[in-house]
Design a binder for these strands. Structure first.
Lengths: 167, 167
DNA sequence: GAGTTTATGTCAGTGTTGTTGACATTCCAA
DNA sequence: TTGGAATGTCAACAACACTGACATAAACTC
């Protein structure tokens, strides 16, 4: 069983010795912060009986218009059946359209409709506002550290997906 | 509708102007990182047909032995019915014990059994290992920024709960 | 002491979101 | 051209959140 140092007196300037206490604080910060991170979109979505899964689909379709279902699948990390249920309601409600691929007719390319783009804007405005406030509160020098740790926390395949989206 | 700057050329050293692109990167980093954050415990829990809800309960009972149900409720931010379902299985499986309060007999004080503590150790060892690796990767100077932004992202009540746990 | 509030637990029902299994369609390669 | 791989859809089920209603016991108030 791995054990960190339990003593005191080590600040973040210590490279090698991270106390269990420091690590635990990071873990709990992550837990509470994620709740805040999703709180605003959750509120908006609840009013229209959508959930987080709808938000995620809308977000990444907006990021990569024309993406295929399979593509979206690998980004979201869920089963195709789970994604399909969400897409079905979004398509049914006229927020997303699905076009059969021209080269490969098995593929479906996904796009937001105007209505879908409007919801996306509402959701991401709320989430950006919170992120902007957090960045301001924490100070601009904190932003790089924040992103660095998060990126280091991802599994390799997520890091790839994350990096790909930055292009 | 709030709109960030869409131009380029502003690094994190710019205090006031955060581009939508910077904010979006933070949002997506948060999304992918949280998956990594929970991946290891999720794997362990799945083998014993427990879920994240069990992990959270075990974690915070370990942090504050003897905490009451109500206390736990406000930290976890779920309904009592939802928490009760989880606690019932944990108590039934002998991982948690519930003691009637001495001062106030309405209250139930929660403790981990040896078996519960063993599972908690397994789960938090895995999660700490990932956090330690992420901190090392990102560099020690990143840790403060990471925690600062996360804390700033919390709602006020979560920030209180988080701060309280640090005592 | 009667009535109210607090803390906890339970039952029933519902919704979102994940899962697996089965299946249809399309493409491609042997 | 036939069989397998890729892609997507439908159905059923499980986990875990929610609301609402109700029960019990203890504590508090007047």
């Amino acid at each position: 069983m791995p054990e960190g140092r339990t003593g005191q007196g080590y600040g973040s300037e210590s490279l090698l010795f991270l106390t269990d206490e420091q690590l635990r604080q990071g873990i709990e910060a992550m837990f509470f912060a994620y709740r805040g991170f999703t709180a605003d979109p959750d509120r908006i979505l609840a009013e229209m009986s959508y959930g987080r899964a709808h938000h995620r689909a809308i977000h990444f379709i907006n990021r990569s218009p024309g993406t295929t279902v399979n593509n979206l699948l690998s980004i979201l990390g869920v089963t195709k059946q789970s994604l399909n249920r969400v897409l079905r309601t979004l398509i049914g409600d006229g927020l997303v359209i699905s076009k059969v691929g021209e080269l490969d007719k098995r593929e479906r390319h996904l796009y937001l409709t105007d209505q879908g783009a409007a919801l996306e804007a509402t959701l991401s405005d709320a989430q950006r506002a919170r992120m902007r406030a957090a960045y301001k509160d924490a100070g601009p020098e904190a932003v790089q550290g924040f992103k660095k740790v998060l990126e280091a926390m991802m599994d390799a395949d997520m890091r790839r997906a994350y990096a790909k989206l930055r292009d």
